[in-house]
Amino acid sequence: MAAVTGEVSWFCCGSAWGPCASTGRGACGTCTSGNFQHAWPNTSAACLAITRPDVCGTSLSRRTCGFTHYTTNLCNGARVGTAIADCGPQTDLFCGERACCGSACGTNRIIDLTPAAYSAIASLSTGLRPCSVDTV
C-alpha cells in the first residue's frame, strides 16, 4: 500500500472516565486507550458501509483487526506504529475536510488513534492533524 495522506484524530476506548465511559472496547473487542492502537475505516464490509471514505474520493485497503499501520504527523514528522482495534473514523461525515500545517495538508479523516498513540506524535488538545499512513 502506498502511503495515504489524510487527517488523523483520536478517540477513547476501553475502561475510561467521563463521556468516554460508554465507548466500549471497539469492533475488535481489544481497544484500550493506553495501547498503541487505532481505528480504520475499512476493517470489514459492514464497517466500510458505515464509514464510506469512497464517498469522499478516498480508497482505503481492507485491513482487519491487529493489522499494523504507521501514522506520521505531517506537522512535525513524528511517527507511531499502531494495530487496528476498531472501525472508524466515519469519514463521510466530514467529507472534504482539510487540515494543514503550513503547506503540509491532509484531506478527509482516514485514521483515529488511541490517546496513547496520538499523544506520542501530537498534543491531544490539537484534536486533528494532517497525516500520512503507510504499512512499513
Binding site: A16, W17, T30, T32, S33, G34, N35, F36, Q37, G66, T68, A78, R79, V80, G81, T82, A83, A85, P115, A116, A117, S119, A120, I121
Partner: peptide, 15 residues
C-alpha cells in the same frame, strides 16, 4: 522516536 510495539500498552502513558 516512538519504540512501543504496535498494539502494546505504552508504559510512558497513563490515564
Amino acid at each position: 522516536p516512538v519504540k512501543i510495539a504496535p498494539g502494546a500498552p505504552d508504559p510512558n502513558f497513563a490515564e
